[in-house]
Design a protein around this nucleic acid. Structure first.
Length: 154
DNA sequence: GCCAACGTTGGC
DNA sequence: GCCAACGTTGGC
């Protein structure tokens, strides 16, 4: 099983929003970056991901989600009314992809970005790399474990 | 709202 | 294929 981190702006879509969806499942649309798209295509059903809250008062890791369906074409990409519309993408030749995610649980507390930065065990974590803006990225087993432990502390 | 950092685009 | 210009991300 692989581990991932997926960013979302909680004002638009938070972990509680996912929790309140029917079947606690939702598709992860709107990814318009090649690296992030390629990571999504590498995801397998059953993989776990951290749900990360970004661009908000307290950015950080909020909870755990499961990959419920592997990558399939992001249909918002050929919908002219969607803010994620991209003329290069057609139903017969999709350009962008999405996965379905299922709510697993919230962490006991949100682990804020400031704490992640202070933890020496996470020194090489991709999320914390200078200038990183990827919205989807892999997480190592050690990083995963470290962050789970941080959520239990305090 | 600012701005650093980065990805993408497009002229050449 | 280079690289300047532009747009976007996301923390602060």
């Amino acid at each position: 099983m692989q581990y991932w981190l997926m960013k979302s702006e909680p004002d638009l879509f938070s972990i509680d929003d996912l929790k309140n969806r029917p079947k606690q499942t939702e598709h992860w649309d709107g990814v318009r970056n090649f690296q992030a798209r390629n990571f999504m295509r590498a995801m397998r059903a059953g993989d776990r991901a951290f749900f990360y809250h970004s661009s908000c008062a307290e950015p950080g890791v909020a909870g755990i989600i499961e990959i419920a369906r592997e990558a399939y074409p992001d249909f918002t990409s050929w919908d002219p009314k969607s803010p994620y519309y991209d003329a290069r993408s057609k139903p017969e030749k999709p350009y962008w992809y999405m996965v379905d995610v299922r709510f697993e649980r919230k962490l006991k507390r949100l682990v804020p970005l400031t704490e992640l930065r202070q933890n020496r065990a996470l020194k090489t974590m991709r999320l914390l790399a200078r200038g990183n803006r990827l919205s989807i990225m892999p997480v190592s087993a050690n990083e995963w474990k470290t962050i789970l432990e941080m959520a239990q502390a305090r």
